[in-house]
């Protein structure tokens, strides 16, 4: 059975080739993993600040939150807009459109291949963190780990769909990366990468919870670090965003391909 042209054999072949492809860029990916240490910088800032008490997380919990934020970010990072823009502009999209497989699957496979390549580097950085902060060391329970893994995957799915929505605008604007920057700013502040959501005033928190951003880092990071969190509300919101974004992406994609075709492919 095929879902949007995909079956198990294609998944295996795509993942295998994309993992091999990403391994070719392992040095670059190691640098990308290293460049994702923003949560550790924020941790050192918050640790030395009197405002720490307002976060509702004590010393060790704060360490674990930011390490979790780092790990969640490593495995939910999406660069769809950049890859897609390049493919559309260079005409690499045309052969993909002529194969009986939805082109978006290739990008999903590239991301998963990249995540697998990142794994040892992210684990190494986490190891170094524990060497520096041994008191923060913890091993989540199997159930906790699986829930965190699922929440991170859902975060990746939301981020991927959000970027696919913007990437589809490439069919109209050709420079969707500029639009992606508009998304990056609220992501940076409201996702939980710079500070846990509890750092914001309650009114802002209430408002932000209606956006997809806290479910990209804050929620999965709290699940991983073992913070008390409303799992049903978190997963429910993640699922709602996926269900909302998926048809939007497919509709915009179809309209975009029609326009791409109208403009000369």
């Amino acid at each position: 059975m095929r879902i949007f042209g995909l079956n198990r054999r294609i998944v295996r072949a795509l993942l295998g080739s994309q993992y091999a492809h990403m391994l070719e860029y392992r040095a670059e990916i190691a640098l990308w993993a290293l460049s994702g240490v923003l949560p550790f910088i924020m941790l050192s800032l918050w640790s030395g600040s009197d405002a720490r008490s307002q976060l509702g997380l004590d010393g060790v919990a704060l360490d674990r939150y930011f390490l979790s934020a780092f790990l969640v970010r490593q495995f939910s990072v999406v660069w769809m807009v950049y890859a897609f823009e390049e493919d559309a502009l260079l005409g690499r999209l045309s052969p993909y459109l002529l194969q009986p497989l939805h082109p978006l699957w290739r990008y999903v496979a590239s991301h998963l291949g990249e995540q697998l390549t990142r794994l040892p580097f992210a684990a190494g950085i986490a190891g170094v963190f524990f060497l520096i902060q041994p008191q923060a060391f913890w091993i989540p329970s199997l159930g906790g780990f699986l829930l965190a893994w699922l929440a991170t995957w859902m975060a990746f799915a939301i981020a991927f769909l959000l970027q696919s929505l913007i990437a589809s605008l490439c069919f109209w604007s050709e420079k969707a990366t500029a639009l992606e920057r508009l998304l990056f700013l609220p992501f940076l502040f409201f996702s939980g990468l710079l500070a846990p959501l509890t750092a914001f005033p309650p009114a802002v928190q209430d408002w932000v919870r209606w956006t997809p951003f806290p479910y990209l880092i804050d929620f999965p990071a709290r699940v991983l670090s073992g913070d008390p969190v409303n799992l049903a509300a978190g997963f429910g919101a993640q699922l709602a965003w996926v269900v909302l974004l998926l048809p939007l992406v497919l509709l915009l994609w179809r309209a975009g391909v029609r326009r791409y075709s109208a403009m000369g492919a």
Partner: peptide
């Protein structure tokens, strides 16, 4: 359509699956 950094055989395997 071939993946630039990989041998053609990898792209052929993907095409065979697709």
């Amino acid at each position: 359509q071939l993946i630039w950094d990989l041998p053609p055989m990898d792209s052929l395997r993907v095409n065979a699956a697709v």
